[in-house]
Amino acid sequence: EAEQYIAGCIILAAAPCTAMVFVWSYLTDGDPAYTLVQVSVNDLIMLVLFAPLVVFLVSGASSLHVPYEVLLYSVLAFIVIPLTIGVLLRQWFIRNHSKEWFENTLLPRFAPVTIIALLATLVLIFAFQAENISGKALHVALIAVPLLLQVYFNASLTYGLMKWLKVPYAVAAPGALIGASNFFELAVATAIALFGAESGAALVTVVGVLVEVPVMLSVCAACNRTRDWFPAEAAA
Results as ranks from 00 to 15, higher is better:
Phe110Ser: 10
Gln91Val: 07
Val123Met: 07
Phe183Val: 05
Leu186Ser: 02
Val70Pro: 06
Leu119Trp: 07
Pro214Leu: 08
Ser156Ala: 15
Val23His: 10
Val188Gly: 03
Pro67Val: 11
Gly8Gln: 01
Val171Lys: 13
Ser156Gly: 06
Val188Asp: 06
Ala202Pro: 03
Val41Met: 12
Trp229Ile: 01
Gly200Ala: 01
Val206Ala: 07
Tyr34Asn: 07
Met46Tyr: 00
Gly8Tyr: 01
Tyr159Asn: 04
Ala236Gly: 15
Leu142Met: 12
Ala155Tyr: 14
Glu198Thr: 11
Phe102Trp: 12
Cys223Asn: 13
Asp43Leu: 06
Pro168Ala: 07
Ser199Asn: 02
Asn224Leu: 13
Leu71Arg: 01
Leu44Lys: 05
Leu72Ser: 06
Pro214Ala: 09
Val188Lys: 04
Ile125Pro: 03
Leu149Ile: 14
Val207His: 06
Val145Trp: 08
Leu138Gly: 09
Gly179Pro: 07
His139Pro: 05
Tyr5Thr: 12
Gly179Lys: 05
Ala7Val: 04
Phe56Cys: 11
Ile178Lys: 10
Leu64His: 04
Thr28Pro: 07
Cys17Pro: 07
Glu185Cys: 04
Trp92Ser: 14
Ile79Pro: 03
Tyr169Asn: 01
Glu198Val: 03
Val23Ile: 15
Arg95Tyr: 07
Leu210Glu: 06
Gly208Arg: 07
Thr114Ala: 15
Glu3Asn: 09
Ala127Gln: 04
Leu149Met: 14
Leu47Asp: 01
Leu83Ala: 15
Arg90Ile: 00
Tyr34Ile: 11
Ala15Glu: 00
Ala61Asn: 08
Ala235Ile: 05
Asp29Trp: 06
Ile6Gln: 13
Thr121Glu: 08
Leu89Ser: 11
Ala173Trp: 04
Gly8Val: 02
Lys163Gly: 09
Ile10Val: 08
Thr84Asn: 00
Gln129Asn: 12
Leu88Ser: 10
Ala176Gln: 05
Ile10Arg: 00
Glu1His: 14
Phe93Gly: 08
Ala189Cys: 06
Asp228Lys: 03
Leu177Ile: 07
Leu217Phe: 14
Ala191Cys: 00
Val37Leu: 15
Lys136Gln: 15
Pro112Trp: 06
Val113Ala: 15
Met20Pro: 08
Ala120Tyr: 02
Pro231Val: 03
Gly86Cys: 09
Leu71Pro: 02
Pro16Gln: 09
Gln150Gly: 01
Ile11Val: 01
Leu88Val: 13
Ala137Trp: 03
Leu210Thr: 12
His97Asp: 09
Ser218Ala: 14
Ala15Val: 00
Phe153His: 06
Tyr26Lys: 13
Ala14Cys: 10
Ala221Ile: 11
Ala221Ser: 11
Pro82Gly: 10
Ala14Val: 03
Ala202Phe: 00
Ala127Phe: 04
Trp101Gly: 07
Ile192Ser: 02
Val211Pro: 06
Asp228Cys: 02
Glu69His: 14
Phe195Glu: 07
Trp229Tyr: 01
Val123Pro: 02
Pro108Cys: 14
Leu148Arg: 08
Ser63Arg: 11
Lys136Gly: 09
Leu186Ile: 02
Thr35Lys: 10
Phe78Val: 06
Leu124Asp: 10
Gly86Ile: 03
Ala180Val: 09
Val206Glu: 08
Gln38Ser: 13
Ala155Gly: 12
Leu203Phe: 00
Ala137Phe: 04
Ile178Arg: 10
Pro16Trp: 05
Ala117Met: 11
Ile115Glu: 11
Ala111Gly: 05
Ile115Ser: 15
Ala155Pro: 04
Gln91Met: 11
